[in-house]
Write a protein that binds this DNA or RNA. Structure first.
Lengths: 203, 203
DNA sequence: CCGATGGTTAGACTGATGGTCTAACCATCG
DNA sequence: CGATGGTTAGACCATCAGTCTAACCATCGG
C-alpha cells in the first residue's frame, strides 16, 4: 500500500514521481520497467522511493490507481445499470463503454499501461488484484442487475461469465486501441463489441 | 531459434534439459523462472545452455513447442473442419476441443506452462509469437472454412474475431483447468463453452 | 539559543538475475 | 603426432529490486 507519507509530499513532486513511473511502465511493461530509471527521471533517491512505496508492485498499483482515478473523474463512476428491460440494460452498458473508451483513447500512456496489465507471474497478482478488487464488485452487481431484468443468463457460474467477459474485454480493448483512430466510427464499433458481449451473456 | 546442435545431443540429455526447464517455467512462470536453477537441475553449465539456446525466451519457446508436439502427438493434429453444414462444423470443433482438454488436463505441468503464456512484455512477444505462428494459420483456415459453410459471420474483421476468440479461449481454458476434475462433466462443459464461442461467431 | 528528537534523504551495498567471453577440453582427421 | 573445431566450464559483466546506515534538517522543549 502506498505509504501515507507520499500524500504529504508537495503535489508537484508527487506528480513528478507518478509521471516518471507512468512513462516507464507504459513503455516497458511491469517486468522490464526499471526502478532505477524511474528514480533518475523523477530526480529522487532510491531511499526516498522506498520510503514512499513498498516496492515496485506498490508503485505500479499507485500509478494505475492514479490514472484510473483521473479517468473516472473525467468519465464519471461506473453506474450500475438500473434499466428495467434487457434493451435498456445493454444500452446503458454500451453508452458507458463508449464514453470510457473515448476518454481512454485520449490518454495513450494510461492505455498502454492498462493494455499490459494482464500479468501471469504471481508477483503482480497482488497489485493487479488490488485493482481488480475495485472492478469486481461492480461486475458482480452489474451481473446481478442484468440477471434480475432478464438481460443476462443464469445458467452458468458467475465466475465463468466474468472470466470470459474479462477475456473478451481485454481482447476487444486491445484491438480497439490498436486501430487507427481515423478509420473507426467509435460509436459504431462500440455497438458491435457490446453486441458480442450480449451474444455471450444473453439467456 | 533452438540451435540445431541441440538435436544432436543424446535424447536423454535433451529430455533432462527440457524437463528441468518445464519444471521451472511451470512453477514460476516465465519472468520469475531462473536459468541458473535450470542449468543446475539439468546438470549442465551456463556455457552449454547458451551454446544450445539463444537465451531464456528461446528455451521457453522450445519447451512449449516440445510440450505441444507431445500433446498433438497424443491427440492428433488440428483438423480443419470439413463439414458442409454449420452444425457439423461446430460439432467437429467441440469434439476436438474435448479431446484436447482431456489430454491437457492429464499434463499438469504443460497446462501450467500454457496458462501463463499470456505475456505482456514485448520481450516474450517473439517467443509467444513463434508459437502463435503455428496456431494462427490453422485459426485462419478454420475461420475461412466456417465462413464457407455459413457457420461463421463475415461482417467483422478476422483479426478482431481471432483476438476475441483467443481471449475467450484463454479465459475458458483457465477456468476449466481451475475446476476440480471430479465435479465437472467434461463433455457437458465443453459443449457449453463451444456454445459460447458459437454465439459470438455465428452470423 | 541550544541540543535532542525524529521524519526524511542519499547512496553504498547485497545477492540475484540474464547474458558474454575466454580458456580449456577432447574427438576426429590428415 | 599435431592440428582443427565442436563442445564445455565457469569467471565475469552490467543491471536489477531491495536493504541499510549515516547524515541531514526542521521542529520542539528547556
Amino acid at each position: 500500500m502506498v505509504r501515507p507519507r507520499f500524500a504529504r509530499l508537495p503535489a508537484e513532486q508527487q506528480q513528478a514521481i507518478l509521471d516518471a513511473a507512468l512513462d516507464e511502465f507504459a513503455e516497458h511493461g511491469f517486468h522490464d520497467a526499471s526502478l532505477n530509471r524511474v528514480i533518475e527521471a523523477a530526480g529522487i533517491s532510491k531511499g526516498s522511493m522506498y520510503y514512499y512505496f513498498d516496492g515496485k508492485e506498490d508503485l505500479y498499483a499507485s500509478v494505475a490507481r492514479a490514472g484510473l482515478e483521473q479517468l473516472f473523474a473525467d468519465v464519471g463512476p461506473f453506474p450500475v445499470p438500473t434499466a428495467e428491460d434487457p434493451d435498456g440494460f445493454w444500452a446503458t452498458l454500451a453508452d458507458y463503454y463508449l464514453r470510457l473508451m473515448t476518454n481512454l483513447a485520449a490518454s495513450p500512456r494510461l492505455a498502454a499501461l492498462l493494455r499490459g496489465w494482464a500479468v501471469s507471474g504471481s508477483a503482480l497478482r497482488q497489485a493487479a488484484g488490488e485493482l481488480e478488487q475495485a472492478v469486481l464488485p461492480w461486475m458482480q452487481q452489474t451481473l446481478a442487475a442484468g440477471q434480475r431484468v432478464g438481460a443476462i443468463r443464469t445458467d452458468l457460474p458467475p465466475a465463468l461469465l466474468i472470466g470470459v467477459v474479462s477475456g473478451m474485454g481485454q481482447a476487444m480493448d486491445g484491438w480497439l486501441l490498436a486501430q487507427d483512430a481515423a478509420d473507426v466510427d467509435l460509436p459504431d464499433v462500440i455497438g458491435v463489441l457490446t453486441d458480442l458481449l450480449r451474444r455471450v451473456l444473453a439467456p
